[in-house]
Design a protein around this nucleic acid. Structure first.
Lengths: 346, 346
DNA sequence: ATTCGTTGCGCAATCGATTGCACAAAAATA
DNA sequence: TATTTTTGTGCAATCGATTGCGCAACGAAT
């Protein structure tokens, strides 16, 4: 009775002097099982605390009801939040989530993806490492008919579903918000332009200026400024300009924060003398002083959408998936670092 | 050739006109397999991109090389960081990590734990939800011989391994640091005292004061102050006192931040006029102005230790585990919000 | 009384991999 | 040459659950 081992249908069968098939059918409410047998089996199963073993089920059915998630690191807020979105949807549909972290290493990523081909997951949601350009490990997955969905950082060489965010529009929104606040000389912290998201953000900045007939001044675009340190230093050089810019749109929150901190040290009031807006809506944005205006990336929704797409492809099975791309709208979160000073122009 | 299905040992066997057993043995370098057969099998396996199916393996061997992790939410920095520690160790030992989030709900937690009894994981690392007092779902796990390790939030009714942090010592360190900086009138933001960690932190505060023969002033202990809002408000009332306290030790970083923000608004210099130290070392601590002194909880190390304990128990198998408790030393991270003004006393 | 349909259940195969045992053929020994 | 040992491989069971098929037993219809 003090069964330390797990309980199987065979254990139940033995105790009731019946076959395992009958137990299985009784538990699954097969129509050809008598009422009393059904009840007897259910009762004993409950009593023995029986739960069907996932591996046996999975081996037979082909599905282990597990989604794989591949991200650079979960201890970055963005990815942790995406993961939450994925988990929400997965749970709704009875899937568990297996997590893999590449730590931005292509070697680790390849190893992880390869190890997933062996039946551990029904499908994979991935955001590739910064190093990744080759796609052969993902092609292997696809060859084995394991559905794949990218988010945020896709590999464009693969024809699979993706969930992205409209960085361009987010940037346009932010810059237009600054313009609406009366800002006319808007500097820009740009990121490394070989990365799509940063290129799009800079493009959005340029587009917004042009839309509003503001001159694009080359010196106001500070390249490669995405860390707190570089933001701090870039702010220093910006403030030395005459006439001084009256706003900054940064491609990232950390550099925006660096700018904020330097401004304070320089005795400059934000937003009275200079407005600042960042991108990503990191958790520290509402916590700094003044709270930082930023563009939210809808991380949780991104996770949800990715999971929905993946589960659809898993269920479709066999049939060729029809890759679709979901582009999410970012949301401008206006905080005090950019409060309006003047009425927006009509 | 265009095999869209996965490749099994039987596929290899068929192509080489041998039995599956031989393939299995050849791949596992069984001594009784001829060299040429071994090579032939290995070559074909590589060519067909064969990977042993995890479910078959798991069903036979009993181990699926998967660790379960149960946390309230991964999008909280502390848990995400613990998860990283777990993942590091798990990967080193060839385990994957299955993630479960209770969202602080006992119902969800129970459902999750129950669904894990069915062979999906070899063991579980858990931090229970804030609601959890009952332990029957964990007892079920233990009955099925699935190893269990708690971290940070254990259930004391269960005799299993745990990894904790010494909140008491962390608090003593922080308060002694303030004292060493010349502070004599140190206020304290306390958390809900029915939660162990907060009780310990307050106890550490009291202990440090007594050790240094400082009077414990009841009015200086502000209860239930762990959010940014309550920190802000509590700071207001503290600053109205005469004589004004010259330091605050907060049981949490968010309330410390609230205090920081109010101090700035009140035109009070931190740390010149009042020092502030928090607890948890949230990621925003180094980012605010001035950077916030805090006590780091060694989250990653906590995850590593938990994973090490769990894997040990998994490998020990069958035999009765000997529960052990690891208590980690927290680390005081001194930042500008508490820079010393005076030389410490001898 | 015979036939047919239904009900209730067991046998055995299956999913993928491993492994104890048996049994040849080859090699080593007497 | 006869016997023993070693080597190389296959058969079949196993892990846990499901399911097509077969086969009784029973009731209803002819």
């Amino acid at each position: 009775m003090n069964s330390t081992k797990r309980c199987t249908i065979h254990d139940i069968a033995r105790q009731l002097n019946i076959s395992a098939s009958t137990v299985s059918r009784a538990l699954n409410d097969h129509p050809r099982i008598s009422q009393q047998m059904r009840i007897a089996v259910h009762d004993l199963a409950r009593e023995l605390n029986y739960h069907p073993d996932f591996r046996g089920l999975s081996l037979r059915s082909g599905s282990g009801r597990t989604l794989g998630v591949l991200v650079p690191q979960v201890d970055r807020y963005f990815f942790a939040t995406v993961l939450r979105g994925i988990d929400d949807v997965a749970t709704e549909h009875g899937y568990d989530v297996l997590i893999c972290q590449s730590y931005e290493s292509i070697a680790k990523e390849t190893a992880l993806v390869t190890s997933l081909l062996n039946g551990k997951v029904d499908g994979l949601i991935a955001s590739v490492s910064i190093e990744t350009t080759d796609d052969h490990h993902f092609r292997q997955l696809m060859k084995k008919n394991i559905p794949l969905v990218f988010f945020d950082r896709p590999l464009d060489t693969l024809n699979v579903s993706k969930v992205l965010i409209d960085d361009f529009k987010g940037s346009v929104d932010a810059v237009e918000h600054l313009i609406a606040g009366g800002r006319r000389k808007i500097a820009h912290f740009a990121g490394p332009q070989h990365i799509r998201v940063y290129k799009d953000r800079t493009a959005g900045y340029l587009h917004a200026l042009k839309q509003h007939h503001l001159e694009v001044i080359k010196d106001l675009i500070i390249p490669n400024t995405i860390t707190q340190q570089t933001g701090y230093r870039s702010m220093k050089s910006i403030l030395a300009m005459t006439p001084r810019p009256d706003a900054i749109f940064s491609s990232g929150d950390y550099s925006a924060l660096g700018a904020l901190l330097f401004a304070r040290e320089a005795g400059l009031s934000v937003p009275d003398e200079i407005s600042i807006a960042g991108f990503a809506n990191e958790p520290f944005c509402p916590l700094v002083n003044p709270p930082l205006t930023s563009v939210d990336q809808q991380a949780q929704e991104m996770g949800r959408q990715a999971a929905i797409l993946l589960i659809k492809e898993i269920l479709r099975k066999e049939k060729h998936p029809i890759p679709s791309t979901v582009v999410l709208e970012p949301r401008l979160i206006i905080r005090e670092s950019s409060h309006r000073l003047f009425e927006p122009f009509p």
